[in-house]
């Protein structure tokens, strides 16, 4: 194969990808008209792409849908949440990451080195967070689900009958 054919076949590949300008495309087709070798490459490449596109693709499972749907339910990891995590948890995480010991030793080390003042802050924050979540979480859920109709089921055993949709 000549160096010229190499160049044309590279252009041919770019042409299949829609990445060749008009002038170069015209030159390519002039060459194809007179070069059987490059025509064979052209035909094979087109057939391969067609066959590849016919292949069944990998699809996302419903389990993945559910996992991704849960992202963002409590807002973004940013602002207060992020700074809280960085200021309080980062030192612990860093220490755990740099410790060469086994998991058991790491846990023991954390227990020994965990300062009481830090524990007190965490306890207060946990109580406060519990209170906030108790009041804010239902509101958050309602806000995020405001476009989703709620189905009301009335159960008349053994059948379940849908009698209407509630939207808030």
């Amino acid at each position: 194969m000549t160096g010229e054919c190499n160049r044309y076949q590279m252009a041919l590949s770019a042409s299949l990808d829609g990445e060749l300008d008009t002038e170069a495309t015209r030159a390519l087709f002039f060459h194809l008209a007179e070069c059987e070798r490059c025509r064979l490459f052209w035909n094979s490449s087109i057939r391969i792409e067609r066959e590849l596109l016919k292949e069944e693709r990998i699809r996302a499972s419903t389990a993945l849908d559910a996992r991704v749907a849960s992202i963002g339910r409590l807002g973004r990891l940013g602002g207060f949440g992020k700074s809280l995590k960085q200021s309080l948890l980062r030192p612990l995480l860093d220490r755990a990451a740099t410790s060469p010991s086994t998991l058991g030793e790491k846990v023991a080390q954390e227990r020994v080195s965990f300062p009481y003042s830090f524990a007190a802050i965490v306890s207060i924050l946990a109580v406060a967070l519990g209170y906030i979540l108790g009041t804010v979480q239902p509101w958050l859920e309602n806000t995020m689900n405001e476009r989703e109709p709620q189905v009301v089921y009335v159960s008349v055993l053994p059948d379940i009958t849908v009698v209407g949709h509630l939207t808030e």
Partner: peptide
């Protein structure tokens, strides 16, 4: 561009 050409050539 070059690598895609090479991949197509191999295919």
């Amino acid at each position: 561009r070059v690598h895609l050409y090479r991949a197509r050539k191999a295919l």
